[in-house]
Amino acid sequence: MIEVKDLTFSYGKDKKALHGLNFTVEDGEIFGFLGPNGSGKSTTQKILTGILKGHGGKVSLFGQDISAAQRQEFFQKIGVLFEFPYLYANLSAVDNLKYFSSFYPKEQIRSIEEVLEELEFKPDFLKKPVSSYSKGMRQRASMARALISNPRLLFLDEPTSGLDPSGAVLFRKIIEEERKKGTTVFLTTHNMLDADLLCDRVAFIADGEIKALDTPKNLKERGSNHRVVIDYLYQGMREEKTIEAPELEAGIPFAHDEIISIHSQESTLEDMFIQYTGRGLS
C-alpha cells in the first residue's frame, strides 16, 4: 500500500527534517509511527498525504508514485484525522459532515447518522454548533469526518488525544473494525499504549530517522530480561521475589503459602524507545 525509499525533506537550507526514511506498509496493516515532538512524524504524514511537496527519495501509494498520482482520485481513497479537531465552529457535526462528504462520490459515502452512532456521539448535540462541544465530542466529529468517505487508507494523528479512557477504548475498537474491513491505517502517535495495543508494526522515529522497525511484541522482547516477580504470602508475611523465567519450569523454587501475583519484567515500548533513540517519548 505504501512504499517509502530514502525519503528526505528539508524546511529551508539548514533545516533537514527527514534523513532518508525507508519503510513499507502492507494492505490492511495498522502501521505505527512512534516518536516525540519534532521527530519528523507529522512531516512524514504530510508528505504521504500529498500536502507537502519537494521531498527527496521515492514515495508510492496505491502502487503509484505520489508526485504522478491523480490528485482527486488519490484524495478520494484516503481519510485523514489531524492532530487537532478542525471543524467549522458555527456549523453542527451533521452539517460539517454533510459539507465535507459532499466532495466525495455519493456511492462511497457512509450514512452520517450511522458513523456518529458508532462513535457514540451524543444525539442532543447533533444539531448544535461545534463551538458548544467538549474536546471529546469534537474528536468524535473529526474522526467521523475521516471515516465518512470509506477510505482505503486512513491516516490517524493522535486519534485518542483528548478522550477519556472509555472513549479511547471505543476509538481503538473502531480502528480495529476498520482493519477488519481491509482498511490500511497509518498511525502517528506518541502514546505508547495506542501503539502497543493497535499496531501490527511500529517504527521508532527520532531526529528524522527510523531507529527501529518491528512488531511491538518483538521490540519489547528484544529488551526483555526474562525475569518474573512473584508476590506471595509466607507465614503471614507478604513478600516478593524475582527469579529467572526458566526456573518456573520446575515449579516455584521457594517456600510459600499463597501466590498473590506473578508479573513479567518485560520492557514497555517506551523503555525500548529510550533504548533505541536515547530519549523519551514526550
Binding site: G50, I51, F75
Partner: peptide, 9 residues
C-alpha cells in the same frame, strides 16, 4: 488544512 486532503481542486 482539511481542504488540503479533500478530493477537490
Amino acid at each position: 488544512r482539511v481542504h488540503a486532503i479533500l478530493p477537490l481542486q
